[in-house]
């Protein structure tokens, strides 16, 4: 391959997006870090307070609960989403009748508006007339206040989160499965491997780069959970405090209460958490991800 000559017109091609990124992202990033060291009042008056916002955060019981909840959603939600979607993708990759129907059914939540999902699940969870309490009643389970009970509410949100995120991940994993050359599986079958052995010894290792990718993006997504909590529970209700996530609290502080410095500090903490966890995941991937 011959080397192309240096081409300064390249800068013209990059300029439009570069300028936009600098203004709306780089400047915004730096400004946000700066704001996190300031006390910003309702009318925009600003005083430098150093690390005070962060010290306040540590003392703030709601922030602590938001952090614990966020780790709960990510810690329980990500394994559930990853395992369920691997299983589903595998099932949808079998040669069976009615695949088109099943695939369509599985993919629909991926394109549904979060707000519609929120409305729908609030109705399903309705403690008096909801379908879920009715169905559970048929097998003798007492009706529950899914979105009102302070113990239960995190689980109720988690169920919707998993329900809504599986679709997208199944699509990605299914594509990963379809890229695995069938000769590997066939070779193993000829050697007498049964379905389970093929799945664990052949399919999973070959799929591991895609699994890793899906784990990373669902982790990042779960750590930023906002939509369903905001949409399904009124902020006045007691249960809200028990379901609140870091991004929900960020939104509340920065935009509902107009505490921009405090809000900025929350987003900086979130950035730190996401960076740390993603870095750990990349560190650990060497142990279980196989690239060929």
């Amino acid at each position: 391959m011959k080397k192309a000559k240096v081409d300064y017109s390249a800068y013209l091609f990059i300029a439009p997006i570069f300028i936009g990124l600098v203004v709306f992202y780089v400047y915004a990033f730096l400004r946000n870090i700066f704001l996190s060291f300031n006390d910003v009042g309702v009318f925009g008056e600003r005083t430098y307070v150093g690390l005070q916002n962060f010290r306040d955060l540590i003392q703030d019981p709601i922030f602590r609960r938001a952090t614990v909840n966020t780790f709960f959603y990510a810690g329980v939600g990500v394994p559930l989403v990853v395992i369920i979607s691997i299983g589903l993708a595998w099932l949808l990759n079998q040669k069976i009748k009615g695949l088109v129907f099943y695939r369509t059914a599985v993919f629909i939540p991926a394109i549904t508006l979060p707000a519609a999902i929120g409305l729908l699940w609030r109705w399903l969870y309705n403690s008096q007339y909801g379908l879920i309490n009715y169905l559970l009643g048929l097998i003798g389970v007492e009706p529950k206040a899914w979105l009102g009970d302070t113990e239960l509410v995190r689980w109720s949100i988690l169920i919707v989160l998993v329900w809504a995120s599986v679709s997208y991940m199944v699509i990605i994993l299914l594509a990963g499965l379809q890229r695995i050359p069938s000769m590997y599986v066939e070779a193993a079958q000829i050697d007498g491997a049964n379905t389970r052995q093929v799945f664990f010894k052949i399919t999973l290792p070959l799929l591991s780069p895609t699994i890793f990718f899906v784990t990373v993006i669902s982790m990042i997504g779960m750590l930023q959970v906002f939509d369903f909590i905001f949409l399904m529970i009124r902020s006045e209700s007691v249960a809200y405090q028990y379901a609140i996530s870091l991004v929900t609290y960020f939104y509340e502080s920065a935009f509902a209460l107009n505490l921009r410095g405090y809000g900025a500090a929350i987003s900086v903490v979130l950035l730190g958490i996401i960076f740390a966890i993603t870095a750990i995941q990349f560190r650990l991937q060497k142990r279980w991800v196989h690239y060929d």
Binding site: I14, F18, L21, V23, F24, Y25, V26, Y27, A28, F29, R31, N32, L35, I220, L223, Q224, V247, F250, A254, F255, R260, G263, A264, S267, V268, L270, L271, I274, F275, T278
Partner: peptide, 23 residues
């Protein structure tokens, strides 16, 4: 420049929201 863009890809969106709103 490419690395610069790559690093932006990894930052969660909330970090930009307050200044973007102010803009």
């Amino acid at each position: 420049l490419f690395l610069f863009m790559l690093s932006l890809l990894m930052v969660p969106g909330q970090i930009f929201l307050i200044p973007q709103y102010q803009i």
